[in-house]
Amino acid sequence: MSTKGDKWGFQPEKSNVIVLDRPVAPLYRQLRLKVPSLASCFFCGGCSATCTASEEGMNFRVVHLLLCRGEMEKVGSLIAPCLLCGKCTLVCPRNVDTRSVVFNLKLALHELQ
């Protein structure tokens, strides 16, 4: 199917700006209710430092930030490599139940599908 974009050979670039004016994603709101300790995260990165799946792109800190900022697109693919070993939860200095966050996120994304 031909679109006008093809005619021009280019399209306006997607904005890179994080827009906090957007309403909080319902999925993130549910997650905060299910795992209240998520509120304690201060993005230190201890979780991703110890993560086996971090080399494959999994980064709990980034996933949480994306959710906070309402940027849902990449979350599913970022958490896919997680094997739920829970090492991140062991190192978390704020006692965030990181494993439970990923677990519930996987369940929720599964249900959305």
Binding site: F43, C44, G45, G46, C47, S48, A49, T50, S54, N59, R61, V91, P93
Partner: peptide
């Protein structure tokens, strides 16, 4: 470097390998 060290382990020469995230 802004990142919390998650673990330290000994290397063969007795030095210490450190893991963190460069956040």
């Amino acid at each position: 470097i802004r990142g919390r060290v998650s673990e330290a382990a000994k290397t063969l020469g007795g030095a210490i390998q450190v893991k963190a995230e460069d956040t």
